[in-house]
């Protein structure tokens, strides 16, 4: 599904991703952990095509299509979804209108008819209930005045509606209490199936108690330095990133 080979990328002349390799097969859940500044969020931005994140070398393909050659919106239509760590607030554009445009853009790509307002409202209400947001959040401006946790749940709601094939969750657990964490995790788990894959980027092992990963990777200084199964996350939880060397231990303290 996703194949990243020797990817190198920079932000404002500073190389952040330094030869990253990752292979994600359909249905798999990969967790990426790592200390601050390792390039975890950068990886999501680079794959999504964010301006200012420049690929210097290597390749990334999604379903055998060259991801790096596509516009931002084309990547989304190809099935890539990035749940943001800090979703932007957009006053003046209703959440409902935004998600309807988005769902219909992706349906069009799949050759499906656009949903009418009434049809969309029905599925939006269901998704809204699933992430336990009050229904008036559909009418409010996109993320406008939402708390940190509400923004994260709004991201998961979009994921449920868009039915992407590859979901990248960028620290979707940060700033959440245990209840909200469970809502986010349940949302993700409800979408797990044999054809949908996840990359769960997180700082802490906690989220992985709820979303069981098939693989855990440690990202440090722009590269994956260690891979393993779920037990690797527990090990990191216990030991910290000490094995990476002294600098990382301090960064994570």
């Amino acid at each position: 599904m996703l194949s990243i080979n020797n990817l190198t990328a920079k932000v404002e002349d500073k190389t952040i991703i330094k030869g990253l390799n990752l292979e994600v097969k359909p249905g798999e859940v990969h967790a990426i952990m790592g200390p601050n500044g390792a390039g975890k969020s950068t990886l999501g931005y680079v794959l999504s095509g964010r301006e200012g994140y420049e690929v210097e070398g290597g390749s990334a393909t999604l379903n055998n299509n060259d991801l790096l050659d596509m516009d931002i919106e084309e990547r989304a239509r190809e099935g890539l979804f990035l749940a943001f760590q800090y979703p932007v607030e957009i006053p003046g554009v209703s959440n409902m209108e935004f998600m309807k445009e988005s769902v219909n853009a992706i349906r069009e790509q799949r050759g499906e008819d656009a949903l009418s307002a009434a049809e969309f409202l029905k599925i939006a209400k269901d998704a809204c209930k699933q992430v336990q947001l009050p229904l008036d959040f559909l009418k409010r401006g996109v993320n406008e005045g939402f708390s940190g946790g509400e923004k994260k749940r709004n991201e998961i709601m979009q994921m449920i509606l868009l039915k992407p094939t590859l979901c990248i969750l960028d620290e979707s657990d940060s700033g959440l209490d245990v209840d909200a964490l469970q809502v986010v995790a349940n949302g993700v788990n409800s979408q797990r199936d044999a054809n949908r894959s996840f990359i769960v980027v997180t700082h802490y092992q906690r989220l992985l108690d709820y979303i069981k990963p098939d693989f855990v990777h440690i990202l440090a200084d722009g590269k994956i330095v260690k891979s393993g199964d779920a037990s690797l996350a527990l090990e990191v939880e216990k030991e910290g990133y000490a094995f990476l060397g002294k600098g990382y231990e301090e960064a994570n303290a």
């Binding site: 990547r75 853009a105 979009q158």
Partner: peptide
């Protein structure tokens, strides 16, 4: 607003439609 534009694009909305929405 470039950030808001990126957010909409990342959800598959075309650039012209995103600009209209925003």
């Amino acid at each position: 607003d470039e950030q808001a534009l990126y957010y909409l694009l990342s959800r598959g909305i075309s650039r012209s439609q995103a600009l209209i929405l925003l």
